[in-house]
Every structure is written in structure tokens, then in C-alpha cells.
């Protein structure tokens, strides 16, 4: 059985199913992080004057800046991998997708060093409300990175990308959808970076 509009667009909406689906999913993600951001604001307003800034100064800004740049780069490589598929250049796709995965790994490794140095200095989620929301937000964001990596690794390996050889348009579509999710993860970090590290 074939579900209509899996690949081609429904004329009335100009969208295919997965494009609409991923945006509805991202809408729910906006509300998930929205709930946590609102908790952040709530706790910040309730905290003693200067408490958040004091605990925020314990974080490592240079490492986080580097991480921001790494994540932005991965956003560019993932869209380049999609553009390569559009240009029918499968080898380039594999290169750019590999680079995306590399960037994601670097991001997680840097995050790992950040976490362990916090633990090393005796800062745990229970130390203060700032540390609690810091670990919760970055931890959940890290889980999103890992989720995206699992999907993209699948599309990078032969098991996932064999669809390219039978139905290139469908495969390109999948990469576009995975890319949209990845940009969203990047977008969340763009807000996490200033509110946790800089303010």
C-alpha cells in the first residue's frame, strides 16, 4: 500500500507528509524547551539577587564558545550534505554527513570535559538552583544531540543509505527532515549559550 504524498507534495498545501510532520514535532519541542525556559526565568526571578550570576561565573565560557562554533559548523555541514544530494553528488553527501557526525562527537566530548570538571570542583545539580537548571537544560539538549546522531549515523551507513540507489528523491527528503531537526537542536543551543554562560 502506498500512502499518498509521502514524497510528492499535496497541491493544496504544497507540502509532503514528513515535512509537515517534522514541523509539528518541532512545535512540540518548542513547547518542551519553552516549559524549561519558563522554569529558568521563574527560578531566576525567585533566586537571591546575583545568585544566578555568581553560579554562572563558574562555567567555562571559552569552551562553550568553541562548542557553539562546533555546533554551528555541524548545522552548515548537514545542510551541505542535503545540497550535495540535490546536486546528485553522493560521495560529497557522505563526506559532509561524516563531518556533521564528527562535529556532533566533538561537541559531546567537550561537554563531557565540562561536566567532569564541574564534578571535580564539587559542583553538582544539587549545589544550587542554577547548577540544577544548567545540568537539566544541557543534559536534555545533549540527549537531543545523541538522538540526532543515531538517526544520522543510520543514514550515513550503507544500511540506511541504500534507499538512495532505489529512490533518490525519497532519501533526499529524509536527509532534509533529519537536517531540520538538527538545525532545531542548534537553535536551542543558540539560546542556551547566552542564558547559561553569559548572563
Amino acid at each position: 500500500m502506498q500512502i499518498p504524498y509521502t514524497i510528492e507534495e499535496r497541491p493544496e498545501t504544497g507540502l509532503n507528509n514528513s515535512k509537515l510532520g517534522i514541523w509539528v514535532f518541532l512545535a512540540s519541542e518548542v513547547m518542551l524547551f519553552g516549559g524549561l525556559f519558563s522554569a529558568y526565568v521563574f527560578l531566576r526571578l525567585a533566586a537571591p539577587e546575583g545568585d544566578f550570576a555568581y553560579w554562572g561565573s563558574k562555567l567555562n565560557v571559552p569552551l562553550a564558545t568553541l562548542n557553539t562554533l562546533v555546533l554551528i559548523s555541524s548545522s552548515v555541514t548537514v545542510i551541505m550534505s542535503w545540497a550535495s544530494l540535490k546536486l546528485k553528488d553522493f560521495e560529497k553527501y557522505k563526506l559532509y554527513m561524516g563531518l556533521t557526525l564528527l562535529c556532533a562527537t566533538i561537541f559531546l566530548v567537550i561537554k563531557y570535559f565540562e561536566y567532569t570538571s564541574k564534578f571535580h570542583h564539587g559542583y553538582y545539580p544539587s549545589s544550587s538552583n542554577f547548577m540544577a537548571i544548567y545540568f537539566t537544560l544541557t543534559g536534555l539538549h545533549g540527549l537531543h544531540i545523541i538522538g540526532g546522531m543515531i538517526v544520522m549515523t543510520y543514514f550515513w551507513l550503507p544500511a540506511g543509505n541504500k534507499l538512495w540507489h532505489t529512490d533518490p528523491e525519497h532519501f533526499t527528503n529524509r536527509i532534509e527532515i533529519a537536517g531540520l531537526y538538527w538545525h532545531f537542536v542548534d537553535l536551542v543551543w543558540i539560546f542556551l549559550f547566552p542564558i547559561l554562560y553569559l548572563l
Binding site: S28, E29, L32, G34, G35, S126, A132
Partner: peptide
């Protein structure tokens, strides 16, 4: 469901942190 459930999921995560990681949200 799509727009109202995620904030509860966020709250559930925070409560889980309070119970497991001894935070004080």
C-alpha cells in the same frame, strides 16, 4: 496534545531531578 503535553514533560523531568539528583526546583 502536541502543544500542552511538552510542558508537563518538562515538569516531569524537573520533578525527576528533584527526586533523583536532589535538586530543589
Amino acid at each position: 496534545l502536541v502543544l500542552a503535553f511538552p510542558p508537563l514533560e518538562a515538569a516531569a523531568i524537573l520533578q525527576l531531578m528533584d527526586r533523583v539528583a536532589h535538586t530543589s526546583f
